[in-house]
């Protein structure tokens, strides 16, 4: 689904969402009933220091407003911008800042929902989609940490062998289905149905806490994480 198609489905009446240098800003009335702030990354862009600070500014100004409208984060990105300039400027602080802004917005009472409709990877994924309370996705979305050929290079394993292994476990290979199984993606939406209604429905069910490890255990993509975290908490209490 293209960015424009997505917007027309989410905001059938009108919206003022713009795309500037691959960054998404604006707002609209979801399904004609629920006002939302919108940020995001479009056109499979890389997210660098300039992009992260611009998005964070928009989140902070939403938080400064009196209304606690939800913040919708639309994501079709690549990874963080890999460059000497970005690292010289301290990209880690910029991405952390954006993630913190989204998390603080949630703590201030804004629902934060990301909709992954394209790609996303690595640091850009962590600072946008994964920093929201709820991550929704559309079929065809392609989240990844690193593509398989690169993983093959780093692990020094033949690509064919990796592809074979990827079929047996969701834990390392790219793709929406794998990420859904690990609990990252709360729900995959039906593109043929009323998208706005589906997002509104998700907005009405805020998770009480970070449920992703429990989801990952239920879906089998992260067999141990939830149990380990629970065991640690239990030991900490009795120690």
């Amino acid at each position: 689904m293209t960015h424009d198609e997505l917007l027309s489905k989410l905001f059938p009446a009108s919206h003022n969402v713009i795309v500037q240098d691959g960054l998404v800003f604006g707002g609209g009335t979801l399904g004609g009933s629920q006002p939302v702030h919108v940020i995001g990354v479009a056109e499979r862009s890389f997210l660098g220091v300039e992009g992260a600070i611009a998005l964070a500014k928009h989140v902070l100004s939403a938080v400064k407003g009196t209304a606690r409208h939800p913040i919708l984060v639309l994501v079709d990105s690549r990874s963080q911008h890999m460059s000497r300039h970005d690292e010289l400027m301290g990209l880690n602080e910029f991405l952390a800042h954006l993630a913190k802004c989204l998390l603080l917005a949630a703590a201030q009472g804004h629902r934060t929902v990301a909709l992954l409709y394209g790609g996303s990877a690595a640091g850009a994924f962590i600072a946008t989609a994964l920093a929201c309370d709820t991550l929704l996705a559309l079929p065809g979305a392609n989240p990844e940490v690193m593509d398989l050929p690169s993983i093959a290079r780093v692990t020094k394993l033949p690509l064919e062998k990796l592809q074979e292994m990827a079929a047996a476990t969701p834990v390392f290979a790219p793709g929406l289905e794998n990420f859904a199984q690990t609990g990252a993606v709360a729900q995959t939406l039906d593109p043929a149905g009323d998208l706005a209604a589906q997002v509104l429905e998700a907005l009405s069910r805020p998770p009480a806490s970070d449920e992703r490890d429990r989801l990952g255990a239920e879906r089998g993509g992260r067999p141990r994480a939830a149990e380990i975290a629970t065991k640690v908490c239990r030991e900490a209490k009795t120690a």
Partner: peptide, 8 residues
Amino acid sequence: LQEANAGE
């Protein structure tokens, strides 16, 4: 990378 999705 061997458990990239879980690590991320």
